[in-house]
């Protein structure tokens, strides 16, 4: 598959490839340093965490931080698995739900034509440009009015109300060839069926990418303004709570940072590898 594509491109040298790879590699390592730093810091003993001048790598790696965090977490009244469930539930359901509603909204915005939809699209873009600092209080009032405070929905619904994903999906659907849609309609397919069976498979890179953003955002939700029931608290809130005692817990909180980073990185790697494998479907743009 890759070779097909290669052949279609202009000819290039093996040396050029190597140089390009080296160039990107050097930059890439510099960009990747924060990931590496989070990893090595989790293994640092307390003396090294507060070393001056600071050192990047760990000299005497230890698992103490992990055991400290483990002991802290096993002393919690609510079992750790409950928090993990809360977070996974919110992230998975929220990501799937958002991709579904955003795609459904993006399709008419990309493929139907009317004055109203043009205006709708303008609002979609504008909403991305409005800063959230001043909207959080009105948003709280809406959530409170609907009596959603202290439920999963208080975190789930606002997270699915952003226009970012609609804009992203719409941009990928715009180029989908009309002829294929028409053919599907002539075959008598319902519009919803066309969207899920014909359009969505071809814009797979788009929703896989959207999954990365949405999962990352939801996984890191603290929800402190909406959730006060101990059973419903989110993992980042709880982990930061137990690890927040200044210097004494600095090691544990480094482990927390590492631990919280793993699921988004996994989702990233899985969807990104699928994104670059979708080239088999490529070539349908007219």
């Amino acid at each position: 598959m890759a070779t097909h594509r290669r052949r279609a491109r202009l000819s290039r040298s093996r040396w050029g490839d190597l140089l390009l790879f080296l160039f990107l590699g050097v930059f890439g390592v510099f960009m990747g340093l924060p990931l590496l730093y989070s990893l090595v810091t989790a293994f640092k003993p307390v003396q090294e965490l507060f070393l001056f001048p600071p050192r990047f790598f760990v000299r005497n790696p230890t698992l103490d931080n992990f055991t400290t965090l483990f002991n802290l977490v096993s002393d919690l009244q609510v079992p750790f698995s409950r928090y993990l469930f809360n977070n996974l539930f919110l992230s998975v359901v929220g990501t799937a739900g958002y991709i579904a509603v955003a795609s459904m909204a993006a399709y008419p915005l990309a493929k139907y034509r009317s004055k109203w939809l043009d205006a709708y699209f303008l609002v979609v873009v504008w909403a991305i440009l409005f800063r959230p600092e001043v909207t959080s209080i009105p948003q709280y009032l809406v959530v409170a009015k609907l009596s959603l405070v202290n439920t999963y929905l208080a975190l789930l619904l606002p997270a699915m109300a952003g226009t970012f994903g609609v804009f992203l999906m719409r941009q990928f659907m715009v180029a989908f060839p009309d002829e294929i849609l028409e053919a599907a309609h002539i075959d008598g397919a319902h519009e919803m069926r066309v969207l899920w069976r014909v359009v969505m498979p071809s814009v797979r890179p788009a929703w896989l990418t959207l999954a990365i953003f949405t999962f990352q955002q939801l996984w890191n939700t603290t929800g402190i303004q909406y959730i006060y029931d101990e059973n419903l608290k989110m993992l980042p809130t709880v982990l930061r709570q137990v690890a927040a005692a200044g210097m004494a817990r600095a090691g544990a909180s480094a482990v927390v940072a590492l631990f919280l980073m793993i699921p988004p990185v996994l989702v990233f790697v899985i969807s990104q590898s699928s994104v670059v494998e979708t080239m088999a479907h490529a070539g349908i743009k007219s």
Partner: peptide
């Protein structure tokens, strides 16, 4: 891009997102 399907179809597909958007994004803004 040309007009295809009915306006009501478009409205139907936009409805779920729009209700979330109006309540939790547009009203606060």
């Amino acid at each position: 891009m040309r007009r295809r399907g009915s306006a009501s179809m478009a409205a139907l597909m936009l409805a779920p997102f729009t209700s979330l958007f109006v309540l939790f994004t547009l009203v606060p803004i």
